[in-house]
Design a protein around this nucleic acid. Structure first.
Lengths: 108, 108
DNA sequence: TGCCTATATAGATGATTATCTATATACGTG
DNA sequence: CACGTATATAGATAATCATCTATATAGGCA
C-alpha cells in the first residue's frame, strides 16, 4: 500500500479525522484522546498506529506519555494530489473555452 | 457512513484514483476504463459504484453506454476539509507567534 | 524492590472489501 | 423477434478492519 493509499484510508475513518482535527489545535497524549472519544485505549492506540504509519502524525516520548503531533507534510501530499486533479479538470475547461473562441472566429 | 467518509475511502484505492485522474481529462464509458486498467469489467463497475455513491462521479446514459464524469463538487468538499485542518494548524502558529511577540514586549 | 500510571500487544469477532467467474438485463440493429 | 454489445448483478473467496477484553511492557516514585 502506497503512502497516499494509506493517508486516504486513514482519513476515511471519522474517529481518525477527529484525532487529526484535535491534533491540529494541540498536541495530545493517548489518554487525552481516549478521554475525547468514547472508545477504549487499545482502540485509540490502534487508530494512532494507522495515522502514524500513514505519515500523518508522529509521536515523541515524554516520561510515560507519548505525545502525538500532526505531520503536515503528509497532509499536504494529500491536498496536492487533489489539487492536481482539480487543475487537470480546469485545464480541460480552458482548452474547451479556447476551442469555443476559435469556433466563433471561424464563423465570422 | 458519511459522504466524507465515503469520499476518502473511495480515494484510498489506486485504481479508483486512476479512474478519477482519467475522468478529470475526459469523460469515459465503463469499457473505456476496462481497457485502461487490467481488471475485469465487473471489478471496474464495482469501483465506479463506490465512486458514484461517494458522490465523486456521476453517470448519464447514451445508447448502451454509461458515460462517467467527475463531480468536482464532492472533490472540493474533500479538499475543503483538508484546508480547514491546515488553517486550524496555521492558526495555532499565528497564536504562537503573537505570544512570542507579547513575551518579547514584556521583557523590554 | 514493589506499585501506579501510560501505553502497547495479543487474540477474538463480526463487518466490509477487492477480486474473480458466471449470469442477467438493457439497448440498438438487422 | 433474434442477435450483439455494454453494463449490472449474484455469489464465492481471501484479506483487511474496527472494536472489544485481557494481558504485557515501560517509566516514575515510594
Amino acid at each position: 500500500m502506497s503512502q497516499l493509499d494509506q493517508a486516504f484510508a486513514a482519513l476515511a475513518d471519522p474517529t481518525r479525522r477527529g484525532i487529526v482535527v484535535h491534533l491540529a489545535r494541540n498536541e495530545a497524549s493517548v489518554s487525552d484522546l481516549v478521554g475525547l472519544f468514547s472508545l477504549t485505549q487499545p482502540t485509540i492506540s490502534s487508530h494512532l498506529k494507522v495515522l502514524e504509519s500513514a505519515g500523518l502524525i508522529s509521536r515523541s516520548r515524554q516520561a510515560q506519555s507519548r505525545p502525538c503531533k500532526l505531520e503536515t507534510v503528509q497532509l499536504k501530499a494529500v491536498t496536492d494530489w487533489l489539487e492536481n486533479v482539480q487543475e487537470i479538470w480546469e485545464g480541460n475547461y480552458k482548452r474547451l473555452d479556447a476551442l469555443l473562441v476559435e469556433l466563433k472566429q471561424t464563423q465570422k
